[in-house]
Design a protein around this nucleic acid. Structure first.
Length: 410
DNA sequence: AAGTCGGGGTT
DNA sequence: AACCCAGACTT
């Protein structure tokens, strides 16, 4: 009896009619998204990279801005990475921006500026993995190949009542086999998008609108009355709490920021200098401010800044005693920062000569910014420096402090 | 196979 | 809070 059901179910999934039904549903009710109005493989590439781990609603304004600023592979390749990061800032996962830029340069140098037209070629480009290669190949070039994202994993796991974690290679392999047998020959790109659209609009994570689903009558999860049991997932590792002692060097209304390394956390963005303090394994939430001695401040300060030019002034302030601000909690995917900060006020320069490290100097397209590792950004205008959202709490606190001090002057 | 990489939207 | 999101890459 069970074997009969399995066989019957397989037949249903391989039924051309089912694929047609999915496409009909998609054609009738899909959202009108910007990247669905173009056949330009570059634009689709940009959209797919932005959509990695990022919701459609969040991506749309970034997508429009990015294409306006970098309309083609050539123009992206010719741009400074700094400018690409500027447009990307706020979107997160900043290595995506760097790899997109690297990918454009790769295409320009090795492929004569022409995007690869198939899965295998696309897969070699930085930032294009299994999913994105399949998505671009099918959507922009009509190649018949699956594109399995989180939506598709959820839809398939419910459709098949898949009783294994969906992240494993085994699950992925089985899903690919299934989709390859099922995928539309005439329009494989729409087929892939239809599955994702179904996952985004109907077969959603927390609830699911099975009453509106065009596949409900063959969905094992729904027929068994337990669609929400799926997808099965492996348990996740817990987030680590890390205290980040942050130093705000202030000169009038300007704040000192330095560039983070090209790889790793917040790669290539500009930060307030800081030093991480591992919260001792104790599982105490430790919501208060840590007790830091003057000597410890100096050790952290020297670890945080490469520039030794501020050591004397900083030490003097630490000796006099400092006010520890915060904490502000900020959560990443894999860690949680307890941000605390001290403000170190520096004397304003007496000379009328402009500072070398200012935004104004930088923006005058001088191309020798490779060595630039620090800047002074003004609190009123930080629009030329990609800053992480993690520090926006500190930033706003400084801005409001500035505003109120200006009001006192009146 | 597990860990590293953001930020925002949802329950 | 926890979970999710049109994942890729490193270890």
């Amino acid at each position: 009896m069970k074997a009969f059901i399995d066989h019957d179910h397989m037949d249903m999934l391989q039924d051309q009619n089912l694929c047609t039904r999915l496409l009909n549903w998609y054609n009738a009710s899909h959202r009108d998204l910007p990247w669905r109005k173009t056949g330009n493989p570059y634009a689709i590439w940009v959209s797919e990279v932005m959509l990695q781990q990022t919701q459609v609603k969040t991506v749309i304004p970034y997508y429009e801005r990015f294409l306006q600023r970098f309309p083609s592979v050539n123009e992206l390749a010719a741009a400074d990475l700094e400018d690409v990061l500027m447009v990307w800032s706020g979107l997160g996962y900043y290595s995506r921006a760097r790899r997109l830029w690297e990918g454009a340069n790769y295409i320009l140098q090795h492929l004569n500026g022409q995007m690869p037209g198939d899965y295998d070629g696309l897969l070699r480009i930085p930032g294009i993995g299994d999913y994105t290669a399949g998505a671009i190949a099918s959507i922009a070039f009509g190649q018949r190949i699956p594109a399995i994202d989180g939506n598709v994993k959820r839809v398939l796991s419910r459709l098949l009542a898949w009783n294994e974690p969906v992240e494993t290679v085994r699950s992925l392999r089985r899903f690919k086999e299934r989709l390859l047998a099922w995928q539309s020959v005439e329009n494989p790109g729409d087929f892939n998008q239809a599955l994702m659209e179904l996952g985004a609009m109907v077969c959603t994570a927390a609830k699911s609108a099975c009453g509106c689903c065009p596949l409900a009558d063959v969905c094992r999860g729904f027929l068994g009355g337990e669609a929400l049991l799926y997808p099965l997932k492996k348990p996740k590792t817990r987030r680590k709490d890390i205290t980040r002692l942050t130093f705000v060097l202030r000169k009038g209304n300007k704040i000192y920021v330095q560039k983070r390394p090209a790889k790793g956390l917040l790669a290539g963005l500009w930060e307030f200098p800081g030093s991480e303090i591992e919260d001792s394994d104790g599982q105490s939430p430790n919501d208060g401010l840590p007790d830091i001695s003057r000597d410890e401040y100096m050790v952290h300060f020297q670890k945080a800044l490469a520039d030794r030019g501020f050591d004397l002034l900083a030490e003097e302030q630490f000796r006099r005693g400092v006010i520890l601000h915060g904490p502000i909690w900020y959560t990443f995917s894999h860690r949680r920062w307890k941000i605390i900060w001290v403000i170190i006020d520096l004397p304003e320069p007496r000379s009328p000569f402009p500072l070398r490290e200012t935004e104004g100097d930088y923006s005058s397209n001088s191309k020798d910014e490779y060595s630039e590792i620090s800047r002074w950004v003004s609190l009123e205008n930080s629009g030329q420096t990609p800053l992480p959202v993690a520090f926006s709490g500190i930033y706003e606190s400084l801005q409001s402090e500035l505003t109120s001090s200006l009001q006192e002057l009146e």
